[in-house]
Amino acid sequence: MRLNPLTVKKIKRFKSLRRGYYSLILMGALLLLAVFAELFVNNRALVVYYEGSLRFPVYGGQIAGTEFGFDYSHETNYRDLRDRLRAEGGGFVLMPPVPFGPQEDAYPGEFIRPRPPDFGNRNFLGTDTQNRDVLARLVYGFRNAMIFAFGFVGGVYLLGIVIGCAMGYFGGWFDLITQRFIEIWSNIPFLYTVIFVSSVFEPNLLLLLAIIVAFSWTGMTYYMRTGTFKEKAREYVAAAQILGASTPRIIFHHILPNIIATLVTFMPFLMITAITSLTALDFLGYGLPEPTPSWGELLRQGTERLKIAPWITLSAFAAMTIVLTLMAFVGEAVREAFDPKKFTVYE
């Protein structure tokens, strides 16, 4: 693939911005870890060697306890199996480094209360108010937040680009009316709407995404509109029109690539918005349904118990700070790399 020399220049420039570049690498690594989270944080074993055969329970369906000689038909408790095989021999179980699922009681049979970090039990960040491992909930909460963030960016871009470009390209009455609509729409208090909707309907990831996107696409249209407005007057658009290109083709093939720079610079910041919105909603109790792991929920639990369980707030807060800071660094670097002026002099 041959890249546009301008793009190559931008990438070079981005790479030269060390802080942003390393942040991106780090974020990428975190994302990769999140995608394969089951291999690191999970209550299912990575490998089970039992009665002469190897099994890999991490991915795939549940394996009933009866298959490993237990007397129950629900899913095998692999930590029990590990302890049993260790005592009796006849096989082995390799558990992930954090052997707990995000919704699982890490201290079965004991009182439900937040417990401090316990390396012996492999609760590296302690447990939350439900005896669930904080690290497991952080990891899976991060994955949910990232899914949400990518969905959010996709949704906002789709609506923002289509509507913004259409406004800029068609102009006239369409532009006028849509702009007025956007002005009204963006004045609806978004948080109240979300709270209202999610207290009436059962909130889930898609519904939340739809609501938040519905109230966030408007900002994007302004940039798309002005960009398209400017490009539309250029000769190459007129040339394309004369050649008989259809309107969508002109917008998406000819105009869009020329205004794409703006879009890219927004992306990290949009993701930050998405993560903070989701966390805020979860914190208020209007976000993802129980018992979905989420950072906001951890923060809520923790702030209500700062004195008796500080590790909950500390973990969630640290995780959030790290991820948001990394994203902000990436965003800054992208913005600078895409800035056509390398040096800006303020007078």
């Binding site: 899913e75 009681d105 439900i112 439900q130 207290s199 059962e202 129980e290």
Partner: peptide
């Protein structure tokens, strides 16, 4: 009482029953 329901949900799986929790605003 969300913690109560979390336990019920987790344990009900042992009997092959899925409970989908919905914690709503009291009036809703």
């Amino acid at each position: 009482f969300r913690g109560v329901l979390a336990i019920l949900r987790q344990e009900a799986r042992k009997a092959g029953l899925e409970l989908r929790l919905e914690i709503l605003d009291p009036s809703a």
